[in-house]
């Protein structure tokens, strides 16, 4: 459903992304991994049209995303970006209600359907009990979940997450990934934790120096050679004895 064709992006004096091509199938959980500065966030920003590629094409349902009206795109594609700077104070419920913005015409009021969607989204993201708290009183993990609930209220077909587990403690990392994995929609997430990526993603895209280095299932992609080549890490590849998912052990010669 989502396709990226020969996408490149450069700023004066620097090529950030170089000729990237891939496609995402409906319903898949696609993880994007790669070291810092490999272009993960930039690529996501182009996909959700905050930045514009220098050349190449991003298509959604075979249609150039540049041709989607802003609201239509927001109905198709929800984003939890790395920014969470809420200026002033909103209640959790107000914030999640903002997910309904792309469906609202100039004078439209919030209707019972919106309230039902907002409640359902809050329930899914496990923040319903916080609904009348103000955002600034919440912990980091709660804030992330509220932003996720807001994105869910957009009822989009694709959810883009930029390092969703950043700053979360271990329990909330897994809780968030469980929650996202259960969603019946397409997920594209940039992830730092390779074991989380291995445990939850159907497909992994490996980025290196602004190019797509490799693409495949976690088993195909997460090999000792790739890890050495891309992340400059020595690793042993094994299996998590409890989940039977691929698991990586990293080591240095310390």
């Amino acid at each position: 459903m989502l396709q990226v064709k020969n996408m490149s992006f450069s700023v004066p004096d620097k090529q950030i992304l170089n000729n990237i091509t891939f496609s995402v199938e409906q319903g898949k959980f696609v993880g994007i991994i790669g070291p810092n500065g490999s272009g993960k966030s930039t690529m996501l920003k182009i996909i959700y049209r905050y930045l514009k590629q220098t050349s190449g094409l991003v298509t959604l349902y075979e249609k150039d995303i540049g041709h989607f009206p802003q609201k239509k795109l927001a109905q198709e594609l929800a984003v939890v970006s790395q920014e969470t700077p809420v200026l002033f104070d909103f209640t959790v419920k107000d914030l999640v209600m903002m997910g309904r913005t792309p469906y609202k015409k100039w004078l439209a009021a919030d209707n019972p359907q919106d309230f039902a969607i907002v409640e359902e989204s809050m329930m899914l993201a496990n923040v319903l009990h916080l609904e009348s708290r103000t955002f600034s009183q919440l912990s980091g993990g709660e804030k992330k979940r509220v932003m996720l609930a807001r994105a869910l209220a957009q009822q989009a077909n694709i959810l883009i997450l930029d390092e969703p587990t950043n700053h979360l403690d271990i329990e909330h990392q897994y809780q968030l990934m469980d929650l996202v994995k259960d969603l019946p929609i397409t997920i594209v997430a940039a992830l730092h934790d390779l074991n989380l990526a291995a445990g939850y993603c159907d497909i992994l895209l490996v980025m290196k120096d602004g190019a797509l280095y490799m693409e495949g299932t976690p088993e195909q992609v997460l090999t000792e050679e790739t890890l050495k080549e891309v992340f400059h890490m020595q690793a042993g590849v094994s299996k998590n004895p409890f989940t039977k998912k691929l698991h990586l052990f990293f080591y240095t010669n310390y």
Binding site: Y48, Y50, Q70, K72, Q75, A78, S81, G99
Partner: peptide
């Protein structure tokens, strides 16, 4: 007042506002 949703969205940051459909 007709655009209160867009004003609210702006407070979430420009990236988020854009992904909520604000031009």
């Amino acid at each position: 007042l007709m655009n209160y949703r867009q004003l609210n969205a702006l407070l979430l940051g420009e990236e988020t506002a854009a992904t909520l459909g604000v031009n």
